[in-house]
C-alpha cells in the first residue's frame, strides 16, 4: 500500500524525508529550550551553575577528554569509560551466559523446570539494590561486587525470558527432531540454541537499560573511576558543565550498543525476521 497523505489522520503517513525531519524536531526543540533557559539564567547570574552555556560545556569536554588530569595525568573521560564499559560488558556477558544456560534448561527439560522455575521467580523479586550492601560486604569494594550486582539485577529476567521463548517453540519441532534421531543434547544444541541466539540479542537489548542503572548505582557508592563515579563525585561541586556531557555520553553509548545489536541481529540471522512475525 502506498502511504497516503490525505484523509483520516490514522491513515496519513509522512514521506521518508519528512519522516526524518519530524524525528529531529523533538531533539531540536530540547536543544533550543536549553539554550534559551541557559541564556536567561546566565544573564541574571553569570556564575549560575545549573544550565551552563554551550562554551562552558565544550570547555569541560575539552578538559575531561583531551587534556590530562593535573593530579593523575589521566584522560579522565576515557579512563572512566573503559572502567565502566568493562564492568558493564563483564556483567552483561556473564548474565547472558547464565541466562542462556539456565533459561534453555528450564524451558526444555521438565525436571529442570519443576526444580528451578519457582526459585527463579522468587529470586527475581529480590530488589538488587537492596542486596548491594551485602555484595560489598561479601566481595569487597573492588570490581567483583559491581559485576555481580549487574548479574544479580538482570540474569533472573534473562533466564525467565529465555525459558519462555524456548517454551514457545512449537512442540512439533521437538517431536520432529526426535523422529530425525536427535538426543536431548542434540535438540538443545542444534535446534533450540541456534533459534534462541537472535532472541538472546533482544533480551540483552531489553536488559541493557537496567544494567546501566545497576552499574551507575554501584559506581556511585564505591569506586575510584567510572562514569557513574565521576557524575556523583562532581555533584558535590555542582559541576553541571561536566555532568551534562557525561550523561550525554552514557546515553550515546547506550544508543550505539542498541543500534549495533539490532544491526547484528538482522545481519547474522536473516531467517529471524520472518520467524518472529506472528502467524
Amino acid at each position: 500500500m502506498v502511504p497516503s497523505r490525505s484523509g483520516r489522520l490514522i491513515n496519513r503517513h509522512p514521506g521518508p524525508a519528512a519522516g526524518r525531519l519530524l524525528a529531529l524536531v523533538p531533539f531540536a526543540l530540547l536543544l533550543v529550550a536549553y539554550a534559551i533557559g541557559s541564556e536567561i539564567r546566565l544573564s541574571e547570574n553569570p556564575n549560575d551553575k545549573l544550565l551552563p552555556s554551550f562554551t562552558a560545556l565544550s570547555d569541560a569536554v575539552e578538559r575531561m577528554a583531551f587534556e590530562p588530569d593535573k593530579r593523575t595525568g589521566d584522560y579522565l573521560l576515557w579512563v572512566d569509560t573503559v572502567a565502566s564499559l568493562s564492568r558493564l560488558i563483564g556483567g552483561v556477558a556473564l548474565a547472558t551466559l547464565l541466562g542462556t544456560a539456565i533459561g534453555i534448561s528450564v524451558g526444555l527439560i521438565p525436571y529442570a523446570r519443576r526444580t528451578m522455575s519457582a526459585f527463579i521467580a522468587v529470586f527475581a523479586m529480590i530488589p538488587p539494590l537492596a542486596v548491594l550492601p551485602i555484595l560489598f560486604i561479601t566481595f569487597g569494594l573492588g570490581e567483583v561486587a559491581k559485576v555481580v550486582l549487574i548479574v544479580f539485577g538482570i540474569a533472573p529476567f534473562m533466564m525467565r525470558d529465555l525459558a519462555m521463548r524456548v517454551a514457545e517453540l512449537p512442540s512439533e519441532q521437538l517431536v520432529k527432531a526426535q523422529t530425525l534421531g536427535a538426543s536431548t543434547w542434540h535438540i538443545a544444541w542444534r535446534i533450540v540454541l541456534p533459534q534462541m541466539l537472535p532472541r538472546i540479542i533482544d533480551t540483552v537489548r531489553l536488559s541493557l537499560g537496567s544494567a546501566w542503572l545497576f552499574l551507575i548505582a554501584a559506581e556511585a557508592i564505591a569506586a575510584q573511576s567510572g562514569l557513574g563515579y565521576r557524575i556523583f563525585l562532581l555533584r558535590r561541586y555542582l559541576a553541571m558543565d561536566v555532568i551534562l556531557p557525561y550523561v550525554f555520553w552514557i546515553t550515546l553509548l547506550a544508543v550505539v550498543f542498541d543500534f549495533v545489536l539490532r544491526r547484528y541481529q538482522t545481519w547474522a540471522y536473516p531467517w529471524f525476521a520472518a520467524a518472529r512475525a506472528p502467524g
Binding site: 519441532q173 517431536v175 520432529k176 527432531a177 526426535q178 523422529t179 530425525l180 533459534q195 540471522y269
Partner: peptide, 19 residues
Amino acid sequence: PNPEPDRGVVFQKYSVFPH
C-alpha cells in the same frame, strides 16, 4: 516409548526448522 526415526512425521505446519 519415544518418538524415534522408525516413524517419520509431517505436520500441517512447523514441520521444518526455520533457522
